[in-house]
Computed example of a mutant assay.
Amino acid sequence: MSYARHQTFHIRSGWLAKALEELNKDCRLFSKKDALIRLGIGKNMVQSLRFWVEAVGLFEQKPISELNGKQGMALTRFGNIVKKYDPYFELDITWWIIHYNIVKDENLATSWYYLFNIYPRNEFDQFNFIDKISTYTDNAVNKSSYKKDFDCIISTYVKDNTVLDVPEDNIVCPLTELDLIKSKGNIYCKTSPGRQIPLEVLFLVMKEASSGNIFINISNLENDVCNIGKVFNLSLDKIYFYLDLMQENGWLRFSKTAGIDSVVLSDIDAWQLITNIYKTINKGAAVNEA
């Protein structure tokens, strides 16, 4: 488990695009002295960005054959898709997958994982969050580290109305647009997003959570960690709504066994669906530009 590796900085608009560009030139960028200059950010922000490129699922540290087995940052499957189809991080689907990658990783983004998957209520504040996660993690770190994570989570998902929403402003985190957490003063609430989540992303989450099992109970979709109910704050009604749409696409079918509603997943490659929708979006953009 890890805490506060973000150095108190949430993802800034433009950060990931710059990291993608520079890491493609040098997979050991973050160990270089000129990383600050090449990325155009300060020392602590560089350390934060090093954390975020892994937490969002774009890169992973692994031995690089071209470097005689030395560790370097290698693109993940998701990272390769983004590099090819959305290098400037302009598409909503990219940010839905980024959110999923963050909150499913208990080891790298422990507090994010805890809030969305484990925390027992939708409503929370700083005191209750820190109290509950301290118990859950057996006081793994001091309270100040939990507070840094809490503050960063809020900055990640809740838009600060005092910050001007203008193109030149790169302080706002694009994940605030997903409407997954709303605030009322110092009270926060996990909320079901008003905008429709891409079906391809939901199917990906379901497939990965199923661990190869094609039969899934509806209750698992709603209540299991790292499944669509927890990851996206979905009610049971919303889950059925999305399942109907996916069934129409032929990706799954409903089954009732012993009075229990369950879903039978198709053998479609979820990542291929993700790639296909990126291709479709890019083709549409090209037609519009023409």
Rank of each mutant, 00 (worst) to 15 (best):
I93P: 06
T275P: 05
I11T: 12
L36R: 14
L180Y: 15
Y119K: 11
K182I: 08
D237A: 15
P87W: 07
S262N: 10
S134M: 03
G229Y: 07
A290K: 11
A19V: 08
A290T: 12
D179V: 09
I268P: 04
F232M: 10
P167D: 15
L67S: 06
V158A: 13
A286W: 06
F116V: 02
I239T: 11
T110C: 09
W95D: 06
E66H: 02
E289N: 04
V46A: 04
L175Q: 09
E106Q: 11
T110Q: 01
D179L: 12
D151W: 03
I133S: 03
A55T: 00
V163N: 12
L175G: 13
N44C: 09
C152L: 10
W52E: 02
L20A: 04
F203Q: 01
I41N: 15
N68Y: 12
V141S: 14
G229Q: 14
S183P: 14
S266G: 10
I64R: 05
G72L: 06
V163I: 15
I97F: 03
Q71L: 07
V264A: 04
D165H: 10
A286N: 11
Q272N: 10
V231I: 15
A17S: 15
L39W: 14
Q272F: 09
I281T: 08
H99N: 08
W15V: 03
F124W: 08
Q71Y: 06
K43L: 11
K132M: 10
S65V: 14
W251M: 00
N276A: 10
S48A: 15
F124C: 03
D237F: 11
S2W: 10
E177A: 05
Y136H: 01
S235R: 12
R5P: 05
V225C: 12
F127H: 06
I133G: 02
G42T: 15
Y242V: 06
K279R: 09
N282H: 04
F51N: 08
L234R: 14
V205A: 00
S155G: 12
V46K: 03
K256G: 05
V158N: 13
N44S: 14
L221S: 07
V201F: 05
A270L: 08
D34T: 01
F215T: 03
N117A: 13
P87D: 08
L115Y: 04
F254Q: 01
E248W: 05
N107L: 07
N68E: 12
N223G: 10
M73F: 02
L16Q: 12
D92K: 05
V158S: 09
Y113M: 05
N220G: 02
P63K: 06
S211N: 06
A209H: 13
I187H: 00
I214W: 07
G250W: 05
M73N: 00
L58I: 00
I260W: 02
E177L: 02
V172R: 05
V53W: 09
P174I: 10
L67K: 13
M45C: 14
S144C: 06
G72R: 05
E289S: 04
F124Y: 05
K84Q: 03
F78W: 01
R253G: 08
K283S: 09
S255I: 12
C27N: 01
A19S: 08
N68D: 13
G40M: 14
E106K: 07
V205S: 00
L49P: 06
K25S: 07
L164T: 13
